[in-house]
Design a binder for these strands. Structure first.
Length: 259
DNA sequence: GGAGGTGGGAAATATC
DNA sequence: AGATATTTCCCACCTC
């Protein structure tokens, strides 16, 4: 890969990040306007997707809006660019053993500096405290166990997915589709990273891949814990599963805060 | 036509 | 030993 291609890749990542950021933020605002999760529509009918616009047009609109949102563009935007470029740069974050979670510190710093204190991966919106140590590993290390997995039972994939979704540092890998309860989407670029982390967490001998992980996610359709949304890379927690996870996470968060 | 995502059957494996 | 929850492999189909 030559330098120009590397820059191009960096720019693509940045563009994807900004688009996702804008989508999430605009949905979050819409959500706060309605302030009622129970009446929210599903991802199918509220997703302001790029499919509905010609790609170029969408990007331009998004970038224009994003530019105006990021005024002044300097510190936050530059840090976003820097972090993403670093994350993307020649797979360094992957090859060096530096994973998305290691990146979480950088990204959290970015989030702290983001306009309006915007939070990318927090279903609970702005009331969720953002800490620099929210990676699952760090949290698991420092907290009394509260999830079934952590109580001694086996860690289950949907718990892990929820952890990832609640971790702002993982927002560029997997994130909530904000205006839809329990709907989440993998990043096309970083989906494999989530799978890798899942494999590492389970201590699998073979490396986990997105394909294998998605097979496991599809298995949840039988038990109804997670269903596949008819949209690329998109899944949805059942309401029951979501409320259980949220209440468990609430306890954990309280424990985190009291430390 | 190829790549990537999806859907699902089936057997293997790990853990409780 | 049996149940459960993946994991792994594989194949077919679909969409872009």
């Amino acid at each position: 890969m030559n330098r120009q291609q590397e820059y191009q890749t960096d720019l693509e990542v940045i563009l994807e990040f900004l688009e996702e950021h804008y989508r999430q933020e605009s949905r979050r605002k819409a959500l706060w306007n309605t302030s009622d999760l129970s009446v929210m529509s599903t991802s199918e009918d509220v997703d302001i997707s790029r499919e509905k616009l010609p790609a170029g047009e969408h990007s331009n609109i998004v970038l224009e809006k994003e530019k105006s949102q990021l005024q002044p563009p300097a510190p936050a935007a530059q840090q976003v660019m820097g972090s993403l470029a670093k994350a993307n740069g020649s797979d360094s974050y992957k090859d060096s053993g530096m994973n998305c979670n290691s990146n979480a510190v950088d990204q959290s710093a970015v989030l702290h500096n983001a306009p309006d204190g915007q939070v990318l991966n927090a279903l609970n919106g702005p009331e969720r405290p953002l800490t620099l140590n929210t990676t699952p590993e760090k949290c698991a290390e420092s907290l009394p166990s509260i999830t079934p997995a952590e109580k001694g039972k086996k860690l289950r994939l949907f718990h892990f997915m929820f952890e990832m979704l609640e971790d702002p540092g993982m927002a560029h890998c997997v994130s909530w589709v904000p205006a839809s309860a329990g709907v989440f989407r993998f990043s096309a670029r970083h989906k494999e990273r989530v799978a890798e982390l899942w494999g590492q967490r389970k201590g699998n001998r073979m490396p986990m891949t997105y394909q294998k992980m998605s097979r496991a996610l599809r298995n949840y359709a039988r038990s109804g814990e997670i269903i596949k949304v008819k949209k690329k890379l998109t899944y949805q927690f059942s309401l029951a599963t979501l409320s259980t996870l949220q209440s468990q996470h609430g306890v954990k968060k309280a424990a985190c805060g009291s430390k």
